[in-house]
């Protein structure tokens, strides 16, 4: 996993655990450990599930360049006393999560450490339900998977990078020296 994916996961988590939306969870977490206790429901989990890097352009040109698809797993786990309404509450909460993240301009146009736009698009958002059959109550888990696409380049470290070329020319067979034509190189 690249640091950028983790950064995006953390930014999503931060936005879902502040303000009024945090009142919907009794607990929240970014890692699947330690074991969740059943008196801490409803629980919001924001995981970095997977990261896929696909070539960005020809794969044998320039430095390794990728289009990264980071899959965030957003899970709401809750209990209910009435199986008739088991999915209603988490459905509302799933809508709230989608709206909170995707209408937040500071998240959608997230910047990296250099101030450049980071996220390119959100090409996929899926929602699934899981009903564990065992346990002391009726449980339901709504699983959102949000794919976040961004570009990821692996430029070689160049502490003495060539930034310009200083050219001094002398016309032949005779002529005055033409000094210091400085040609800046694109970085």
């Amino acid at each position: 996993m690249t640091t950028l994916s983790t950064y995006i996961r953390d930014q999503a988590y931060n936005r879902l655990t502040v303000g009024s939306i945090k009142d919907n969870w009794r607990s929240s977490r970014k890692f699947p450990v330690p074991t969740l206790q059943s008196d801490l429901l409803p629980c919001l989990s924001v995981y970095l599930m997977q990261e896929d890097l696909n070539p960005d352009g020809d794969d044998n040109v320039s430095v390794p360049r990728y289009i990264a698809d980071a899959i965030l797993g957003l899970s709401i786990f809750d209990e209910t006393t009435d199986p008739e309404v088991i999915d209603g509450n988490v459905d509302v909460l799933a809508d709230l999560i989608e709206e909170t993240l995707l209408t937040d301009i500071s998240f959608v146009s997230l910047k990296d450490s250099t101030g450049a736009p980071l996220i390119e698009s959100f090409p996929r958002l899926s929602r699934r339900y899981h009903f564990p059959s065992q346990g002391e109550k009726y449980f339901v888990e709504c699983r959102l998977q949000l794919t976040v696409r961004y570009r990821c380049y692996f430029a070689p470290p160049t502490p003495t990078a060539l930034t310009s070329v200083d050219v001094t020319s002398t016309p032949v067979p005779t002529g005055a020296v033409v000094p210091n034509i400085i040609i800046p190189l694109p970085q």
Partner: peptide, 17 residues
């Protein structure tokens, strides 16, 4: 006492009564 497995293989401790 059992564990229910949630998203990302996260365990939740619960009981069968």
């Amino acid at each position: 006492n059992i564990s229910v497995i949630m998203e990302n293989d996260a365990p939740m401790s619960t009981r069968v009564v």
